[in-house]
Simulated scan of single mutants.
Amino acid sequence: MKKSVFFGAATVAALAAGAAAAGTLDDVKARGKLNCGVTTGLVGFAAPDANGEWKGFDVAVCRAVAAAVLDDPNAVEFVPTTGKTRFTALASGEIDMLARNTTWTFSRDVDLKFEFTGINYYDGQGFMVPKDLGVSSAKELDGATVCIQTGTTTELNLADFFRANNISYEPVPIETNAEAQQQYLAGACDVYTTDASGLAATRATFEDPSAHVVLPEIVSKEPLGPLVRHGDNEWGDLVRWTLNALITAEELGVTSANLAEMAASAGGNPEINRLLGTEGNLGEMLGLPADWAVKALAVGGNYGEIFEANIGEATPIGLARGLNAQWTDGGLLYSPPFR
Rank of each mutant, 00 (worst) to 15 (best):
F87T: 08
S137T: 08
G124P: 08
E115Y: 10
M97T: 08
S107V: 09
K139E: 07
D132S: 04
F127G: 04
F116G: 05
D111H: 06
L112M: 15
N120P: 15
M97Y: 02
V110I: 13
A99N: 03
F106W: 14
M128A: 12
D109G: 10
N101E: 15
G134K: 06
I95D: 07
K113P: 08
M97E: 13
Y122N: 14
T102Q: 14
I119H: 00
G143R: 02
G118Y: 00
S136N: 15
P130F: 06
R108P: 12
S107Q: 14
W104Q: 15
V129R: 01
F116A: 00
E115C: 06
T145Y: 06
L133A: 15
D123G: 02
S107F: 10
C147I: 11
T145V: 08
F87I: 06
R100Q: 15
Y121G: 05
Y122F: 08
F87D: 15
L112Q: 15
A89G: 10
T117P: 03
T88V: 13
S107W: 09
M128L: 10
N101I: 13
E115T: 15
C147Q: 00
E94K: 12
K139C: 02
I148S: 10
T105S: 09
L98W: 01
Y122S: 02
F87S: 07
G134C: 06
V135M: 14
K113W: 07
T102E: 14
L112E: 08
E140N: 02
L112C: 12
G134T: 04
T103G: 01
D109N: 15
F87W: 14
F106Q: 13
V110Q: 12
L90A: 11
K113I: 02
M128G: 11
L133I: 13
S136Y: 07
K139R: 08
Q125S: 05
R86E: 14
